[in-house]
Structure formats: C-alpha cells, structure tokens
Write a protein that binds this DNA or RNA. Sequence first.
DNA 1: CCGCCTCGAGGTCA
DNA 2: CTCGAGGCGG
Length: 681
Amino acid sequence: MSQIPQAVRERADSLHQQLDDANYQYYVEDEPRITDAEYDTLLRELQSLEAEHPELKTPDSPTQRIGAAPAERFEEVTHAVPMLSLDNAFDDAELAAFVKRVADKLECDGDTLTFCCEPKLDGLAVALVYENGRLVQGATRGDGRTGEDVTLNLRTIRSIPLKLRGDSIPPLIEVRGEVYMRHSGFEALNARARENGDKVFANPRNAAAGSLRQLDSSIAAARPLEFCAYQVARLEGEDDAHSHSDYLKRLRTLGFRTSPLLDVVKGERGVIGFCHRLGEQREGLDYDIDGAVLKVDSLRDQRELGFVSRAPRWAIAYKYPAQEQTTTLNDVVFQVGRVGTLTPVAKLEPVQVAGVTVANATLHNMDEIERLGVRIGDTVIVRRAGDVIPQIVGVVESQRPATTRAIEMPEHCPVCGSQTERLEGEVAARCSGGLFCPAQRKEALKHFASRRALDIDGLGEKLIDLLVEREWVKTPADLFRLEAKSLAELPRLAEKSANNLVNALEAAKRTTLARFIYAVGIREVGEATAASLAHHFGSLQALSEASLEALEAVEDVGPVVARHIHTFFRQPHNQETLEDLQGVGVTWEEVEIAGRPQPLAGQTWVLTGTLENMTRDDGKARLQALGAKVSGSVSKKTAALVAGEAAGSKLEKARELEVEVLDESTFLQRLAEWENAEENQ
DNA sequence: CCGCCTCGAGGTCA
DNA sequence: CTCGAGGCGG
C-alpha cells in the first residue's frame, strides 16, 4: 500500500466531515451554512484527493453517492419486521373514535393520553438497515412482507446518511421513512426534461417512485430525492426510549431528517387540532402530503394495545378528503367479464385529479347508476381518494344540458349479441352467451394464462384478442394446440416470439392442482379457495365428485361457493374442457397428495350407516385426502369400516372378516389427528 | 385506475 | 423507435 502523506489524509477526513455536516445542516436541520457552490467545491476537492489516493475512498464517502454500475435486477428482501399498513380516519369524528378506542382499551382517560403526530408524506415507504453505523441495505415496502433491494439508488439520496452520526451508534438499527420529491425539485427536473425533449413526470410521487426503480443508480443520483424518517423498526444495543418521540429524537441525533412539523399532543383535542393546523399549512408546503399519522406516544401503551390483524391499534392515518374534479360523462360502455357480468364503465372527458389523468371509472352496476341519477352528457364529480381507484361520486344537476341520455342496460350483449339477463337476487346483469361470447372467452383465457393461474409467459391481452378473433382459440385447451408456424403469421409475432410462446405453453403444462383449479375459473373460486380445495381433496377426481356437503366442509367454502363448484363440475362442456386439457398434456404432480404425509395410502376404507356429524361424502373426501381409497363393500382387504347408526350387513361382514370397525366418534377423532399431523409437518 | 420502469422483439432507416 | 408484456407502487 502506498504511503499517504499525513496532511492529505487529514485534509480528506476534514472534507469528508465537512460534507457530512453540510448535508446534515441542509437536510436535517433545514439550516444550510454553506452554499451549493461551496459544497460542490469541497466535493470536487475530495474527489480529486480520492482519485490520487484510491485508499482514501471509503463506501461511506460523500463522493460515493453518484451511483454505481447498473444492477441486473432488484433482489428480493424479506422485511425482518413486516411493514404494516395503518387504519384510516377521514374526519374529526373518526379521529375522536380512535382516541376513545385507545383510551378504552388502556382503561385510561383519553385526555391524558399523549400522541405523536406527523404529516404523512406522499412518497414511497422504504426501510434502511444500518450495521455498526453503516448503511447496508435499503428496501422498498413491497407487499409489506417482502420488498426490493434498492440500496444503490437510496445511497444517492443526500438526506440518507451513509454513516450514522454521533457517539451512540447502535450495532443494528432499521429505520423506516418516506422517500419523496419536493415540488421545487420536481419542477426543476421536469423543466430540464422538457428542454431535452424528454417526457415529463405526472407528479412528484410518480417521479420519486420511478427514480427508485431505476436499475442504473446514476440516473437516480440525478433525481432530487429526499428522505424523511418516521420509525425505528429494529434496534439493538443501547435503547433508553420510552416513547415514539424519543425514537424520533434519537433518529435526529443519528443524522436523519424527521418531519419539522411533528408535534406531541394530548387527547382528542390535541389530535384533531394537529390535523386542522396541518391542513392550514398544507398549501404552503414544498411537498405533497396526504394526511397525518397519529401514534400513541408511549411504547408501553403501544405494546399493551398491540395489533388487530394487519394494523397496529396504536396508530391511525388521518386522510384529507379526497380530491375531486368535475368533468363530462361522454359515454358509458358495458364491459363483459369472465363470467359474463356486464359492468358499466364511464368514459370521461379526461381530467386531472390528484396528479393523474382520469378518463375511465367504473360505475359498478345499474343500482349505482340509479343511485347517482347520472345520465350520459352530465357533468359528474370524480374523486380519487389518496391513491385508490377513481370514483364518480355525484352529478352536478344544475349543469345538466338538455341533451342528456339515460343509461340503459343493453338487452343484448354488446360483444356477442346474446340476450342479457339479470338473475333474481343478483346486482349485476349478465351476458347469457357463455363461452360463445368472445368477450367471455377472452376474459377466461386471460385468467387462465395469468401469473397466478398457469402463468403462460408472453400471452398477453392483445395476443389473446387476436387469437380469439381469428377463432384459433376457443377453449383453453386450444392454446396448447397452437403451432409456432401459424403463430408466426400474426402481426408483431415473428418466428422468435412464436417459438417463445410455444415453449412457454409447453412449460405451463406442468402445473399444480391448486393453480389448475384456480385457472379453470369457477365462479367465486379465487387463489385461496383453489388452494384449500386442492389441499382438501387432493385430486381433481375427488373434487369433481364432491357433494355439496363435502364441499361446504372445506374451510372458507360456504353454501354459495359450494353450489358454484358443484354446478361447474356437472356441466358437460366443463367436463369436456377439463378432459381436453388433460388430453393435450396439462399435468400436475400429485404434490398435494404425494408431497405430504399420507397416513392412509394404500388402504381401502368403507363407510356405512348414518353418520351424525358428517355426511358420508364428507367422510369419503377426508379419507381420500389422507390417501385412502373408499369403496362400497367390505372385503378382507378392507382396512377399516366406519359404522354409523343403523349399520347393517356391512358391519356383520366386517366382524366376520375381523376388519377393524370404528364408530363415528372414534373416526372423527382419528381423522382430526391425521389431519393435524399433516398441518404440523 | 394510472403512471412508471424494464425487457424482448419487430419494424424502419441509414 | 415503438409496441406489448410484465411488474411495482399507491
């Protein structure tokens, strides 16, 4: 290693320190003491020293924020502590109810309770992990359980310390916060983009989200991203915090920006007061907020309150009333869903609502249209609540032109012309065309090919449209009969893509029973239900033969879903499709059976007599799920006979052949044992 | 529902 | 350069 002159090393250390301090003053204290130009001068000096003496370059040097070599893809990160969502409150009454709930649960006076309040920035949540003071990982929220590793992009954000400050640096800390973009930064970025003829971002949130998703972190480095910390998710080492606000103070000493607007208040009045004050300041802020987050400050109280399913009971997100705009309802078209449901979709004159252009909005069903009293040509009020789906919430009747037209449920399907019908007790009307209707066919195929079903790579919406329109594909099984040669004739699909698709289809043939059940699209059978059906019955055969009672015995399956499943398997054309699919080579490993203990594999059981607590079908299904065969007559090969009330000749024969006989209660007990053993494996 | 990013493939043009 | 598919985030 070459010798670095002492003076150079000292100068580099000093520059490093000065730059860190400047960042801290600028981003955390909001009090810059040097100008941007001075910062740049210092940074350049450090860069040149590091260029001369590469040993000076450390990963936490301020020069190392410029971005690194492009990544291949983002790695998946599992959050050690899940990133939960919060309950929402939309008005004072709901805030008051929250305070009361907390006070009741803690059995204390709500007025004495302390809450820590801060604005809810409109950006993206990320989690930063520091080990021994160094930033080692930064991840997006994802679904709360797992997110993506965007460390390299986060490192470019100057308000994220690469190295923690101060002298009480914990061995491990995970800091949660929001990555966002200020209006000023956003405007400057878009101005630059406009000059270069690049496309501009729709709003600061999308700009921030887009920037974090750049594989090339040098692009992220050029984006004016900022970070504001709001939570300590994990902390090892010294921890003398008693409240959430203690943690926020600690975060500041460690070098994080926390919200300058945060406040600690008491009781319902304090909480409501904070939200009102924040509302008044909102317009003047240089960044978007979509509300406030209110947390019970005391950590002991937080622990006592605990969680309700996915959300902590000790916090709530106050959301500002959703933004609304008026626009014209140009038309209503009826979309045909997978099972023929006709959904009215509003075609709107495009309008900006809360930073995005809204041109479509669902009207759900005719009841909703009636409730709104909306007509084509009306001026309507469109709302986009925070980030959810746009809704039409009302009509400006005073602005109704003379030319409006009523919205009527078409008598014939707009796609296939079949009669539409609205069944007793259902909100939605349906196209009666079934799979004769190209729209239903397309939707069914889309579902069949989707990721959570058979996951056919490269088979997207446009291609399905084409295949159905040319009548190359009518049923899912037809997909597997497609040939690369003919596929290549399609527009935008040459040899390469055609081969890829055929290969993808070939790969998709090997699936699981659960995916298969989900893919065939039985009404009301989603991913979860499909999985429990697969688990419960173990084979398509057992499922298709299951009685209503046996189906209802499955967890989460009620009478309605049971009926749908039962009906599905009794329709000849469905049976044909299922057979056809297996015929063209769709298979699944009997993992559902083979992959788990099968205590009864190879055994033949017989059920007889009347069972009190279950039907024979149900018993049969449960035995089959455990690997047993169930037959109707007792022989010397019979492993056991389950005898209910009034068992007759079979019981006699079993005794004769010395076959084990179980009464109902013993049987139920054994079943439960076997099934539990399975769960616990 | 919308906006954004990435990737592979196809087409266009030099 | 453009399009479609796929995925993410709110």
